[in-house]
């Protein structure tokens, strides 16, 4: 075959492949998937923060963190990557008080995400540990991953 034919066929095959897979694909990133990943991640990191601050008596179970997520308001479908996910988190703190916080979540196409917490409730970017050192606040902003099947 002449090179021009081979090249044209290759480009057409690639274009057809992209079109076909784009049309047939479904979203790996869903509202439920994000909620299931975000809740336990926040709970684990909240316990880590409590350890830094010297607060005792909480475990991921006692916190019972629950996330409820929405992407880009009511008119946008709650699927897929994007910087416009908002998750309302509710949990129980070490004093038994119910807490609610709004998390801004950016989900990447590789199903990892970055979540930023409300600093009024979770504290600023750095916190002071029991020895008086400034350390990174684990729940101010954190990375996570949404499990997928393939």
């Amino acid at each position: 075959m002449r090179p021009i034919i081979t090249r044209t066929l290759t480009i057409l095959a690639v274009a057809a492949g992209i079109t076909a897979t784009a049309a047939a694909g479904h979203f790996d990133i869903t509202k439920t998937g994000l909620e299931r990943a975000l809740g336990p991640t926040f709970a684990n990191l909240y316990v880590q923060q409590a350890g830094i601050l010297g607060i005792t008596g909480i475990t991921p179970t006692t916190i019972g963190a629950n996330a409820s997520c929405d992407k880009g308001g009511p008119k946008v479908a709650d699927v897929g990557a994007g910087p416009n996910w908002i998750c309302m988190m509710s949990w129980t703190d070490n004093k038994g008080q119910h807490q609610d916080g709004k998390f801004e979540v950016t989900v990447r196409t590789d199903t990892t995400y970055v979540a930023g917490g409300p600093s009024k409730i979770v504290g600023l970017a750095t916190i002071t540990d029991t020895h008086g050192h400034d350390v990174t606040n684990p729940v101010f902003e954190f990375d996570g991953v949404i499990p997928t099947g393939s």
């Binding site: 992209i18 897979t21 784009a22 694909g25 790996d28 990133i29 897929g80 990447r108 196409t109 590789d110």
Partner: peptide, 10 residues
């Protein structure tokens, strides 16, 4: 291409 939202299968 992999960073485009909606091309999860591609």
């Amino acid at each position: 291409l992999g960073s485009v939202t909606g091309l999860d299968l591609t």
